[in-house]
Computed example of a mutant assay.
Amino acid sequence: MTMKNLPKAGYKIGKIAVGGALLMGLGMATVAYAQNQPLKTVDKVELDRYLGVWYEVARKPLYFQNKCDRDVTATYTLNENGNVNVDNKCYSKDGKLNQSIGEAYVQNAPFNSKLKVSFLPSAIRWLPVGRGDYWVLKIDDDYQTVLVGEPKRKYLWVLSRSAHPSEAVVNEYLDYAKSVGYDLGDLIKTQQTAK
């Protein structure tokens, strides 16, 4: 039996199913294509404007954030040697404060869009091991929202100056992440209890 021989309702359902499958296939092909392209960063980050407190809005799962249940923040300050101090905080389900202090090293000065971050003890942080990529992929002109990732697209964070940014802005950044090849099937939306 061909689609033309189906009753009208069945024919319409068949067309919808075929159309949906085509759209899903195109979407998967687009993500696969994007994943094979080199990940691009923003042209330039002005570090002095980037410093300060950022609230995590969303992230892909990351082993060292397994204890983080809510109120995840990152505070960046410049240290005396020109690197960036990183102070990550979050609360676990039982209300315990977790804190990780690290240091970020700019890899592409003066553009400042690619950094390496180390959370090793400060006495051995100078070793070029145990450093993770921190790439600024998208940021607005006012430095209020940022998408951070790494070249293999395993990790991703959407950060905001506000604990509760607009859903439209968050979706814009997540849509951009998808367009450059991120799989957001395991995305975690961060609970922020700050007002």
Rank of each mutant, 00 (worst) to 15 (best):
A194R: 04
M24Y: 08
L47A: 04
S92L: 10
R131L: 02
T30C: 09
A9S: 07
Y173V: 08
K12Q: 09
I188F: 09
L159K: 01
A168V: 09
S179F: 05
E46T: 08
Y91Q: 09
T2H: 09
Y173N: 05
A194S: 10
V72Q: 10
Y63C: 07
V180R: 06
G27A: 14
L51Q: 06
K152R: 12
N171G: 10
Q65W: 06
Y176P: 06
R161I: 07
W157P: 02
F119A: 02
L39F: 04
S113G: 02
V45W: 02
F111Q: 11
Y134L: 04
S179C: 09
K40P: 03
K60M: 11
R161D: 13
A104D: 07
G14L: 10
K138Q: 11
T2N: 14
T30H: 10
R59F: 01
Q144V: 05
D133W: 07
V18Y: 09
V72M: 04
D175E: 15
A21P: 02
R49A: 14
A168R: 00
V86M: 02
E56Q: 07
T190W: 00
G95E: 03
R161K: 12
P110R: 06
K116E: 10
E46M: 14
N85F: 05
S160Y: 03
Y176E: 03
N88V: 12
Y155H: 14
Q99G: 04
A168W: 00
S179R: 00
P110E: 11
R70P: 05
L6F: 10
S100A: 15
H164F: 00
Y91V: 09
M24G: 14
W157H: 06
D69S: 15
G130W: 09
A168T: 15
Q107P: 07
L97M: 12
R49H: 13
R131K: 15
T190Q: 11
E80G: 13
L47N: 00
V180K: 02
W135A: 04
K44P: 01
K4V: 11
P110D: 15
N171I: 07
K114C: 01
K154G: 12
G185I: 07
D175K: 10
V117C: 04
K8Q: 09
N108C: 01
Y33I: 13
W135D: 05
Y143I: 04
N88S: 02
C68E: 03
D133C: 05
L137E: 10
K178Q: 13
F119V: 06
I139Q: 04
D175A: 14
N85T: 05
R153D: 05
G27N: 12
Y76F: 12
K116C: 00
D48S: 15
G149M: 01
Q192I: 11
A17P: 03
G14P: 02
K114L: 01
Q191A: 15
